[in-house]
Design a protein around this nucleic acid. Structure first.
Lengths: 245, 245
DNA sequence: GCGTTCTCTTGATCTGGATCAAGGAGGGCC
DNA sequence: GGCCCTCCTTGATCCAGATCAAGAGAACGC
């Protein structure tokens, strides 16, 4: 792990309008800017472990990390993917509940917890945004509960590809809606751990989706969606994908 | 559904110190008291459906309700149990994401959404408490993801009994820690829908736990925990059960 | 260039939990 | 009391996905 000295300007930050600071005005942003610092991690590196003191909380600026829970015998479930703008840690709790691991090169924008909590108390925009983000994550977690509890392996893999598609469209909005070429930020193993499957089953289902013409693969990490509607059908979700407002 | 006219006194409310209003002082409570009203529902009754306008948000005062997600072909996953003090609805979103169903007689303490949102904006204690509750629910949802994705049927049923045990101890704290006689507020079918299992598997696992001496049953709804440590072992969780602060 | 290593794919077999199919056991109601 | 009706239990069988096993690429170091 590396602490980076360069203090970049918040107003040019790539996650400025989606992160916890999204609603802050210039003055509030100044205060955050004064206490922030950056850290970065290499692929595979542990960012934090369950039970660790959470002295700092942070936002993902770039890269992908996972939030996971491990049973004593080693069985592991990823309970959240952390993509740019996602938040790590929670105010008011000193210990982390999950393991956090970088799966690509990750840069975090960090704050010491106590000063940040003070700022939240004084800055309604920050508290509101934290609540909104927590509720969005709660909805995402509950959707994932449906996936884990009731979907078939095929539906799980299709749903996962749609999730990556949905999240990869957002950043700049470029070529919006037709960004059908996905670069998976995860290995098959991470996918399996997220989907509640084994690596072999994930591999077979990707092959199955390819053979049925819904997707194409280029190497291991690139998936091209050939038939978005077909993929949505395979995912078992009702068309709308939920969320109208 | 029945709207109840009697305006009970908040300060004597059974969920006063656990619900969304837990942190409010007397003055704040007065303001809430002015806009609240009660509704009650019979077992099996639908409280709200996915996509409904959420004109009111509410807290569960008594009884048990479920939050569930249904696939087009009928497969259903319960994504949350709503016990007394739990909150239904979210500020800032007009449409509900899940179906809400009463599974016993349920009484809700309701607020119209827009006035409530106004109050949240002016009452930091309310916003803070909402954030805390949302984050607690997020942790619970993530723990459930581990259960759904990785636990065996036996572990799921044992974990469920421990969950009910944990939640049934809290209310008054009476006979704390030794409240080993559980009255299940759910049928086997609801348990199965919550655990990502079928009703037959739940039944077999309850029988299995009984035959191994960990629990005893009295009729269908009463479970007596004979060996709490054994039940924890069967649940597959590490001993501590997490959460130290 | 060429092992070495890591990840992914594919095949064969096994198994936990689903599904299909009968009862049993209360409990409410006349 | 007796008859439904609902919920639960138990047994028999099936099957999706796990597990076990063996390569096949691709990436990397030297």
């Amino acid at each position: 792990m590396q602490v980076i000295d360069i203090r970049e300007n918040c107003s040019e930050c790539p996650i400025r309008h989606r992160a916890v600071c999204a609603r802050c005005n210039d003055q509030e942003l100044d205060r955050l800017e004064q206490i922030k610092f950056y850290r970065s991690y290499e692929p595979g590196q542990t960012i934090a472990l369950r039970g660790d003191d959470m002295e700092t909380i942070s936002s993902v600026v770039s890269g992908t990390a996972t939030l996971s829970r491990v049973m004593e015998d080693g069985r592991t479930q990823i309970v959240g993917l952390l993509l740019p703008s996602d938040f790590i840690g929670r105010p008011g709790r000193a210990h982390l509940q999950y393991d956090v691991t970088a799966i690509s090169k990750v840069t975090l924008c960090c704050f010491r917890r106590l000063p940040f909590e003070g700022l939240v108390a004084e800055t309604p925009h920050l508290g509101e945004r934290m609540l909104e983000m927590a509720l969005d994550e709660l909805d995402a977690a509950r959707d994932w509960m449906l996936l884990l509890g009731r979907k078939t392996a095929r539906e799980k893999v299709a749903s996962f590809l749609l999730l990556i598609h949905k999240r990869s469209v957002r950043p700049g909005g470029e070529t919006m809606g037709e960004n059908l070429r996905l670069e998976l930020p995860l290995t098959r193993e991470v996918m399996a751990t997220y989907l509640g499957l084994t690596i072999e089953t994930v591999s077979r289902q990707v092959t199955g989706l390819r053979k049925s013409g819904v997707i194409e693969t280029e190497g291991k990490k690139i998936i091209v969606i050939r038939d978005l509607i077909g993929l949505m059908t395979e995912s078992g979700d009702d068309d709308d994908g939920g969320m109208l407002d």
